[in-house]
């Protein structure tokens, strides 16, 4: 113990005890009210934070879906197939059949019957799209073979 501590204790001991100040009677109600209000604010903050997270996740999910749509836009395979068919019709028929062209034509015929069957049974749009897409691919192949043959004939 230092001399300073001893001194103050002696000094305080030589004086009358400090008068105890009464506590304000409304202090506890004020503290309790402040505490309740802080708790409410915290709950709101938690709710707001939770809500923000949900909104953020929903926003991200929406953006992802939108992005997927942007990356893989809906293609009207049916219209595209019809356009390819018109292009094919505009080309002269080759004198001799190319084996590749024969293969494609045979598959096209098979695909057409599948398409008809799909329409008849009221197939889902996704199934129809897949068939039309395949038809486009076959028409594309046929078109390139036919163009090749036309070019060779001219030369």
């Amino acid at each position: 113990m230092s001399d300073d501590e001893l001194y103050f204790r002696e000094l305080a001991a030589g004086m009358p005890a400090a008068r105890l100040e009464p506590l304000p009677p409304d202090l506890w109600p004020r503290i309790a009210a402040s505490h309740a209000s802080r708790q409410r604010r915290r709950r709101w903050r938690r709710l707001a934070t939770g809500g923000s997270v949900v909104a953020l996740v929903a926003g991200l999910a929406f953006s992802l879906t939108a992005w997927r749509h942007a990356v893989a836009p809906d293609i009207d395979w049916q219209s595209r197939a019809q356009a390819l068919e018109l292009q094919l019709d505009s080309l002269p028929m080759p004198a001799a059949k190319n084996p590749m062209a024969q293969l494609a034509e045979s598959e096209l015929a098979h695909l057409d019957s599948n398409l008809q069957a799909a329409y008849d049974r009221g197939a889902a749009r996704g199934d129809m799209d897949a068939l039309w897409q395949r038809r486009c691919e076959l028409l594309d192949a046929l078109l390139s073979v036919r163009r090749q043959q036309t070019l060779s004939t001219r030369i």
């Binding site: 300073d4 501590e5 103050f8 204790r9 000094l11 305080a12 004086m15 009358p16 005890a17 400090a18 008068r19």
Partner: peptide, 22 residues
């Protein structure tokens, strides 16, 4: 009139040091 009244005569930082240490 008492030790607390005496302490109240000190500047704030000095008073805080006396109260906390002593």
């Amino acid at each position: 009139v008492d030790a607390d009244a005496l302490l109240a005569r000190l500047p704030p930082r000095a008073r805080a040091i006396v109260v906390l240490h002593e």
